[in-house]
């Protein structure tokens, strides 16, 4: 077992990431890169403004407006391209904040135990039992809705799941014989962390973070759907919110572009994230990868 683990990192280093991915993973990565590219190059890719009306209201997709226009006559393709910036930013920032924070808290509280653990668990309990949606409404009312507020609030509410699950894993790991043995032989905390805990925990944290990113994007869309997002941000969720609050949207043809394109963009990104997460999970946990 030890021997296997020793050889594995060598293979990992020798192969570029791309070749380690499965077909779906490659596709997912391509989609994500494409979206990121669209987000970055939005000003170059769009002929029309994403804020100001540039055509008739609710025009169907055409050569001039590849994705049609909304009820104010604003080009939807431009809105979606600029919206990618918001969604990707929210996803990445929240996942990073909550994933790293949650993992750190989980390891510390699981490994240290004692007072630190008790305090963390109480804090997690408090955060977990507070109904998040109303609290978000309150916070949004208090701080004013902005992308930063949404990222911070989402992160503040989503780190707990990662932390708890990682803590429970650390608690189990701590009981493993080889770790007890290593402790007996005088292994330092840092060594234990690096050699034994992190490799075991990384897959959980990575999957957790990828999921967090996806969920943060969905949560932002959900908040915007309720009309609590940043109204000036023009995120995908907000486009859908506007479309859905258009009365009788389902009985007209408008939803075929107004709702479907942002929905598609959102689903594509979120599913790609999940598929990529699967591959990363395989890469991160050598035993899963091989069996």
């Amino acid at each position: 077992m030890n021997g296997l683990e020793m050889t594995y990192p060598a293979t990992r280093r020798s192969l570029p990431l791309w070749h380690m991915l499965s077909g779906s993973g490659k596709l997912a990565l391509l989609i994500l890169l494409l979206m990121a590219g669209v987000a970055l190059a939005a000003p170059l890719l769009c002929r029309h403004s994403h804020r100001i009306a540039s055509g008739p209201a609710l025009a169907a997709p055409s050569l001039v407006h590849p994705m049609g226009t909304d009820e104010l006559g604003v080009d939807l393709w431009a809105q979606i391209a600029y919206g990618a910036r918001i969604s990707l930013l929210v996803g990445a920032a929240t996942a990073l904040l909550a994933g790293v924070g949650g993992a750190a808290v989980g390891i510390v509280s699981g490994y240290q135990g004692g007072l630190a653990d008790r305090l963390t668990m109480r804090l997690i309990d408090i955060l977990l039992v507070l109904p998040d949606l109303p609290v978000m409404i309150v916070l949004a009312a208090f701080f004013g809705p902005s992308v930063t507020t949404i990222i911070v609030v989402l992160a503040a509410f989503s780190w707990t799941a990662t932390a708890r699950i990682i803590r429970s894993r650390v608690l189990i790991l701590k009981e493993r014989r080889y770790i007890k043995a290593a402790e007996l032989y005088g292994a330092g905390t840092l060594y234990l962390l690096r050699r034994h805990f992190l490799p075991e925990i990384f897959p959980l944290a990575a999957v957790g973070m990828i999921r967090l990113a996806g969920r943060a994007i969905v949560a932002e869309a959900g908040l915007s759907f309720l009309g609590l997002g940043d109204p000036t941000s023009r995120s995908w969720g907000l486009i859908m919110h506007h479309a859905l609050s258009f009365k009788g949207i389902y009985y007209t043809d408008f939803w075929k572009w107004w709702l479907v394109f942002p929905w598609l963009a959102l689903t594509l990104v979120v599913t790609s994230l999940a598929l990529l997460g699967r591959d990363l999970e395989k890469l991160a946990d050598p035993r899963i990868g091989r069996s």
């Binding site: 804020r51 009306a53 104010l72 004013g144 809705p145 109204p231």
Partner: peptide, 20 residues
Amino acid sequence: ELLRQWLAEVGIEITIRSVD
């Protein structure tokens, strides 16, 4: 947003503040 657009055209800047 429409108001902001129109007022921008006559040289007035509008900041939208949306709350519950």
